[in-house]
């Protein structure tokens, strides 16, 4: 195995089996002749933070609610590659209480998002598995306009190290600047994670590119995607590109499409 934590490249012979326990997710991958078999299940407690990776002699008996999947492949000696990915939809995070950003003020908040495990057999992608599947939510001014996002149970924080950083979560730094004369209530924050690349620091923490939201006068806001993670990231290196290529690094949106109030 040459993996670091949950991720990396794993050489499995036929009959070998690996089990990941990454917080709420239990994932078992077994190699058979011409196929990869895996089962996964998610614990009812999304806040579990234990991690283990074990090589097992046999495929363990899955619990009743486990999902079985089989992937047939012709690549006989391809290793299993497990890559970290950011979620495939925007993430909505809430503060503990309503936050107001006074006129002219700039604040920086940190959002901790669960990572997806991208499984590949060599260069052939097999599947993607969320370490924790967040609940669906709707973000928009009405039930007609908006988009389906993931809702985070964890609150966004004002300090980067306010909570422990498990190996299967990434931190997104969001800067909110208010250039208007009014102070908008920030009840929810929409983070466009599919547009962001993922980085890993030498301390093992994952970071995404920074995001800046500038509230201009009126009901418009500017969304700027940074080129790099925040300075808190220790010698970051890029580990996966953005899922979607952003049309521009600076975009204009309705305020309600970024900050829910």
């Amino acid at each position: 195995m040459s993996g670091e934590g949950c991720f990396g490249r794993f050489d499995l012979a036929i009959g070998d089996c690996l089990r990941w326990q990454t917080g709420p997710l239990t994932l078992v991958v077994a190699r058979s002749t011409g196929e990869w078999r895996l089962w996964r299940c998610e614990a009812s407690d999304p806040d579990r933070s234990d991690f283990s990776l074990a090589r097992l002699p046999d495929v363990p008996q899955p619990p009743q609610d486990a999902v079985w999947e089989r992937y047939v492949t012709t690549e006989a000696d391809a290793p299993l590659v497990v890559a970290p990915l950011l979620p495939d939809r925007p993430i909505v995070s809430r503060p503990r209480d309503v936050v107001f950003v006074p006129p002219g003020e700039t604040v920086r908040v940190f959002v901790s998002v669960p990572l997806w495990l991208g499984l590949s057999a060599g260069r052939r992608p097999l599947t993607e598995i969320p370490t924790h599947r967040p609940s669906d939510t709707w973000f928009g001014p009405s039930t007609v306009e908006g988009q389906v996002c993931y809702a985070l149970r964890t609150r966004f924080r004002l300090e980067a190290h306010a909570e422990p950083a498990p190996a299967w979560r990434a931190v997104v730094a969001v800067t909110v600047r208010n250039e208007d004369e009014a102070a908008p209530a920030m009840q929810r924050l929409n983070v466009p994670v599919p547009l962001l690349a993922l980085f890993r620091g030498t301390d093992g923490r994952f970071w995404s590119e920074s995001v800046t939201i500038i509230r201009e006068s009126g009901e418009t806001a500017q969304l700027r995607l940074g080129e790099a993670p925040p300075p808190e990231a220790v010698n970051p290196t890029r580990v996966s590109p953005a899922r979607q290529v952003p049309p521009r690094r600076t975009m204009f949106h309705a305020l309600g499409a970024l900050l829910g109030s």
Partner: peptide
Amino acid sequence: ADREPLCLEEP
């Protein structure tokens, strides 16, 4: 409803 991930948190 809170425990069902496919059930929207908002609305």
